[in-house]
Design a binder for these strands. Structure first.
Lengths: 207, 207
DNA sequence: GCGTGTGAACCTCTTCACAGCG
DNA sequence: CGCTGTGAAGAGGTTCACACGC
């Protein structure tokens, strides 16, 4: 389904709806309204309806949205019906901690591999996953590129790691590295910038 | 300086400018233009000028912005001229990894304490910082509330931890916990949601 | 009556283009 | 002449309010 022109903000909210729906489903709730979702996600109910209506007519007027049905649709939109594999590049502090923390509570993701270039670390097992050398990347994930790489390499090694990933066909990267990285068109790159989050909090404290 | 009505987006970009300026300063660059910042931060030069002009006239027409001068001003806006302390609540995988990774490359932040409720963990030293019991929070940080708390407690314990922090005067929280949390007015709460980032990447891969 | 889906109004943020200063 | 600062135009997203279907 190409050519959808929905904003990142909408997708971000869909992710929240999905999380909320999984919880509702686990609690035995069968049907929810836009107001239900709006209160739990901190969004106006009109926004919830707009977001959902952008992809089809999922609701039943007068009652609301069937939880399992809506969740299935959102999963299809996000691609989490068959979630991509998640691999970690860099088995340092953060990389190891991510694997040990797991991905419970997410849309079905799980870590399938972790890589490092340090010979002392290669071969260790972290949360049941063996650390592999980075040049084994191709063998492990294949070339279909249907996976997400989380980047947790040391400062200064980000771009080199990205280049390696891209050359192996990777198309989605989440970087914890505090450096601006370049990727070619067709590869999506996002950042988790602790530094910026702290700046935002620091600023808001003096307002 | 109260009552400034600037958007979160602007503040987020200021954080990027600051990082870019620190690097420029370290490289010996004395003056930069809005185009310089725009290229390195992936923003239009007009946006850069608008962002900066919102707080005063920092630039010199015909030449640009003096690096040290501009950085000083941004630091003052963000509050990073005297950065608040950063404490970590929860000495599990992520909390420990954050301390061990440190805060190099940020606007001068550093971790000043880490807390946990598990007696087996209390007393250990992580990156030179001793894990304290959570009820020692008041003694350690005082009651002025001028610090940022990073929340890395296990799922299900988020709200309890937040309540404790708030009751001790904490006014800024960055949560790694995948739960919606409630805070009273006057307390700022932000999330790092790995799950949502993965959803965004997953979605963009199928477009 | 209740709640969705949706055009219209509203608001915010971005981009454009240029005046003005060094 | 170069680059900042800024009104004006444009784009995008949110809220409002109501028609329609259950």
């Amino acid at each position: 389904m190409p050519g959808k022109k929905v904003s990142e903000k909408t997708i971000r909210r869909l992710s929240h709806y999905a999380r909320c729906l999984r919880k509702a489903g686990a609690d035995g709730t069968g049907v929810v309204t836009s107001k239900y979702l709006s209160e739990r996600c901190g969004i106006s109910s009109a926004a919830v309806r707009k977001d959902l209506a952008a992809f089809g007519e999922f609701g039943k007027q007068g009652s609301g949205y069937e939880v399992s049905d809506l969740l299935e649709n959102i999963d299809r939109i996000l691609g989490t019906c068959e979630p991509p594999q998640v691999i970690v590049i860099g088995a340092g502090n953060i990389g190891s901690a991510l694997l040990e923390s797991g991905l419970e509570g997410t849309g079905g993701y799980s870590y399938s591999a972790i890589f490092d270039k340090n010979p002392e670390i290669i071969g260790r097992t972290i949360a049941g996953v063996t650390v592999q050398p980075v040049d084994k990347l191709g063998e492990v994930v294949g070339e279909q590129g249907n996976y997400i790489a989380i980047l947790t390499v040391p400062p200064g090694e980000g771009q080199r790691a990205v280049n390696g990933l891209v050359s192996m066909g990777c198309r989605a990267i989440l970087s914890f590295v505090l450096e601006p990285l370049d990727v070619p068109d067709g590869v999506v790159l996002r950042y988790v910038e602790l530094s910026t989050e702290l700046d935002l909090l620091s600023h808001s404290m003096r307002s």
